[in-house]
Amino acid sequence: MRLLIGFLFAFAVAAAFGLGLTQFALTRGTAFGAITIGAWTAWPKTGTSDIDPYARAAIARSGELPIGSGDGVAFFASSDDAGRALDGRCMVTVAGTTPAARFWTITLYDLDGRLIPNAADRYGFTSQEIARRADGTFEILIGPRARPGNWLPTGGIDRYVVVLRLYDTPVGVATRTAKDAPMPAVAAAGCA
């Protein structure tokens, strides 16, 4: 009897621990091959045949097609430079320059990868349509209330993720530091 209870206990622990670990690893994203620059993280190997088993499982689960490395690279930011999670009820600025790329886009998604509904039907900017300062840098304001300049509406959503996609870019698996790839700064600018 004690043996049976012991086995049941061990199996319960195994199921909870194993499945919990899988769930955690697939939703949080793993550190394998990740490049983190400031608030931004990219997994360039996910766009190659060298993709690791965790990323394979993660894309099979989410149903997305990762951007191919010959096409470009996607950087994700779900918190600001200070590490605070991005909150759609607050203002956040994304300012500075991007690494060299022929074309880039910046887009807001909810945590499941859906675009964020808003009255302006505006989901992101591209390098061609963004308004820049005289020195070539730009500033994007992300928040629930309309602002002059490059404003992206959050619709007051709780959590979201900003995705910066660089197309036709030298940034990739060989990139290591901010020196290779200067990313825009992500900063909280107060809650309304």
Partner: peptide
């Protein structure tokens, strides 16, 4: 033992 088995469960589910 449960934790070790859990590790195997984890790897198997990922693969």
């Amino acid at each position: 033992g449960g934790l070790l088995l859990g590790g195997i469960v984890h790897l198997a589910t990922v693969l």
